[in-house]
């Protein structure tokens, strides 16, 4: 458990940030701010969230996608990062683990995640 003063300090910074609820297995579409010289633009990054870790302001999540030539691409973002313009939850996945690192060893059909249906 964190010290209450540290918790209050972090709470005050996180307050007002609108972050959708998601967990490992969900498919996300992120708007990532990219700075080129003095111009900034937003690039979309779409993939499966394979882990959420940490607490408070230090919380991060990992998104994995299959890039060109079937090369896996993973990016780690701080949840409250300024460089994230938007987080969109596209699909809720049905998974039985909190960390989906096993997806790194899977290719093709076996790397699929079934969608959660209510």
């Amino acid at each position: 458990m964190k010290n209450r003063y540290i918790a209050a300090f972090e709470q005050a910074q996180v307050a007002g940030k609108d972050i959708p609820e998601f967990k490992a297995g969900d498919t996300l579409r992120l708007g990532v701010r990219i700075k080129e010289g003095d111009k900034t633009r937003v690039q979309k990054f779409e993939g499966v969230c394979i882990s959420l870790r940490g607490e408070g302001t230090g919380k991060t999540f990992t998104v994995r996608k299959m890039g060109a030539n079937n090369v896996g691409v993973e990016r780690i973002f701080p949840l409250y990062s300024e460089s994230l313009e938007s987080i969109e939850v596209l699909k809720k996945g049905r998974v039985r683990r909190a960390k989906l690192y096993y997806l790194r060893d899977r290719r093709g059909k076996s790397a699929r995640i079934t969608e959660l249906r209510k």
Binding site: K2, N3, Y5, I6, F9, E10, Q13, V14, K17, G56, T57, G58, P78, Y80, S81, E82
Partner: peptide, 19 residues
């Protein structure tokens, strides 16, 4: 000395809290 944390923003800064 209470402990350390970090800020969120354009640049994230490691901070130390003192009461």
């Amino acid at each position: 000395k209470i402990g350390m944390s970090r800020t969120v923003g354009a640049t994230s800064v490691a901070v130390t809290l003192l009461k």
